[in-house]
């Protein structure tokens, strides 16, 4: 281990999540270093989204531990996890459809951050970061799916996250939109936010990540740069389905 152990903002230890007899997470352990963007890839059903769901409190794990900033947060409720400084986006965005764009952001800004000051500022910051200032009074249900993804991200940002879990945001985007989102995520990193990005598109991961973790069958099988990954035999075997 060459990485700086003290720099880990998130530590996942032997996490197990079962659905009936199926082990979606089969004792996965990994660490995310503070201030970095880590990519998370792997074939369908390898447990990437489940991992995000467990870390963000949407699912409860069966065993193992999640440690954030040195504090154990395993299986505590989502809103508490949000208050600790973790947030996430959804693969299929889940904005509050009946509310306006601004209301979506506002409710997160008011309820999501520990620091109750500067609410209006945080709303404006989130709206301008995701570029939906002009649509602030539109209902979320009238947005395009790309705009809904951005709103989902905006909701997360309004809670002032230190760690942001991004679940397959690039799927279905145009090349121009991809570039825009990549810049946005890199901008967040500049501001000190740590990111874990689940993604299928290796090109997208290559644009933004410092390191990638490859998962298969609920476990980490590789960690390193994308270049190394593409030369790793096990990774190749897993992706080719051999």
């Amino acid at each position: 281990m060459s990485r700086n152990e003290n720099g880990a903002i998130l530590k996942i230890e032997d996490l197990i999540k079962k659905f009936g007899n199926f082990r979606a997470l089969d004792g996965v352990s990994l660490e995310v270093d503070k201030g970095k963007i880590i990519g998370l890839a792997g074939p369908n059903g390898s447990g990437k989204t489940t991992l995000i769901n467990v870390v963000s409190g949407v699912y409860k794990s069966n065993d193992g531990r999640v440690i954030f900033n040195g504090e154990e947060i395993t299986n505590i409720d989502s809103h508490k996890i949000v208050h600790k400084g973790i947030n996430r986006t959804f693969q299929i965005p889940k904005p509050l459809l009946g509310l306006t764009v601004e209301e979506n952001i506002r409710v997160a800004a008011v309820y999501g951050a520990k620091d109750k000051g500067k609410i209006e500022e945080r709303i404006e910051y989130s709206l301008s970061t995701i570029g939906l200032v002009d649509l602030r009074f539109k209902k979320a249900e009238s947005l395009t799916s790309t705009q809904q993804k951005l709103l989902d991200l905006g909701r997360a940002l309004a809670t002032n996250p230190k760690l942001l879990l991004v679940d397959e945001i690039a799927a279905g985007l145009t090349q121009k939109e991809l570039k825009m989102i990549a810049d946005m995520l890199l901008g967040l990193k500049e501001k000190g936010v740590t990111l874990m990005v689940v993604e299928h598109l290796m090109g997208f991961l290559d644009m933004i990540t410092d390191e990638v973790v490859i998962m298969n069958a609920g476990k980490e099988i590789f960690r390193g740069s994308i270049r190394e990954a593409s030369n790793n035999e096990e990774v190749i075997r897993v992706f080719l389905g051999g």
């Binding site: 989502s78 949000v82 459809l97 509310l99 409710v107 909701r155 309004a158």
Partner: peptide, 19 residues
């Protein structure tokens, strides 16, 4: 607004930090 969020989607509401 928090109550309306709960009505819309309980998971999203809790990820907006709502108890």
């Amino acid at each position: 607004l928090a109550l309306l969020s709960i009505k819309e989607d309980r998971v999203s509401a809790s990820l907006a930090g709502i108890n």
